[in-house]
Simulated assay, not measured.
Amino acid sequence: MSSMAREIMAFVLTTSGWVLVSSTLPTDYWKVSSIDGTVITTATFWSNLWKTCVTDSTGISNCKDFPSMLALDGYIQVCRGLMIAAVCLGFFGSVFALIGMKCTKVGGLDQTKARIVSFAGLNFVCTGLCSLTACSLYAHRITSEFFDPMYVAQKYELGAALFIGWAGSTLCILGGAVFCLSLSEGMSSSSPYPSDRKAFVTSGVSLMSRAAPQSQASHVRRPPPECISSSQQFDKNAYV
């Protein structure tokens, strides 16, 4: 697979992962109330990073935004910060990837474009790690409360937003790693001499090697013209 096709595939992976990570922020179902051990369910509780809601048996939902940011639990504040950082890093990574890809006409030389693409790949890897950490931290809190026998409040299960965030994080990390490999390929393919200059140097070396025997033959000592003329006269008198 050529480097250009590899970069296009990495861009599709990272962009898709960034879209999935961004879609988890407005998604409602980060955690859903568990119905384990209950026969009749009259209400369903669910919440995300911004609000908590309840849906009754008739399908009517009532939501309440978190009243204070400072009064929130610490893990929710950390998850908010990590997800916002992931979205921002993914945005800048997409911009740098468009500039540094070989299929675009901006970015300068191939060596410079390789560095830009590798920087974009680093942004996407950080995007995936931030989102992966936020989703895993939120899921750890849910599972620890669910399996704690001393926890008597409402227990929750993993929501759909967590699985979407994990999938998007995986795509961002894979695509970002492929982008980071472009730096080594760009540095190895680049040369301090252009291709035409290399051809000129090669042709010059071949011409010098061909001209070497001729120059050596030109330095061979020849007899003086007086000796040549006397020998020619001697040859003529020999036959008289």
Rank of each mutant, 00 (worst) to 15 (best):
A114E: 08
M1I: 07
R141F: 06
A85Y: 02
S34P: 04
T127C: 09
A238T: 11
T202K: 15
Y29V: 13
V39A: 05
N48T: 00
P225V: 10
N48L: 00
F96Q: 05
M9H: 13
C88W: 07
A177S: 12
A10P: 05
S33K: 01
Q111T: 09
D73N: 05
S3A: 15
I40G: 01
V32M: 07
Q111V: 12
M4Q: 15
L162F: 10
I142F: 11
A212R: 14
V117I: 11
R6Y: 10
Q111E: 11
A211S: 14
S215W: 05
T112V: 06
W46Q: 09
G74H: 12
S231Q: 14
D196C: 06
T44F: 03
V201W: 12
S2N: 11
V125M: 00
V12L: 12
L181T: 12
A97R: 08
V205Q: 14
S57L: 11
G165E: 02
T14R: 04
S229A: 14
K105W: 04
A71V: 04
V54D: 05
R221G: 04
E226K: 12
E185K: 08
S144P: 01
Y193K: 11
G100H: 02
V117N: 11
G107Y: 00
R210I: 08
F147C: 02
G176Y: 00
A153D: 06
F163V: 07
F91A: 10
M150G: 11
R197N: 09
L132E: 00
S3M: 15
G204Y: 14
L158P: 00
A86N: 02
T170I: 12
H219M: 14
Q216F: 08
I8R: 07
S61I: 05
Y156Q: 03
G100W: 00
S57E: 13
S188Q: 15
G165C: 03
F179Y: 12
I228S: 06
F92C: 06
V21W: 05
V32E: 08
D65G: 08
P192Y: 02
S22R: 04
G168E: 03
A120C: 04
L129D: 01
E226Q: 13
R221E: 10
F147H: 12
S23H: 02
L137P: 03
C130S: 09
F92V: 09
S94G: 15
C88G: 13
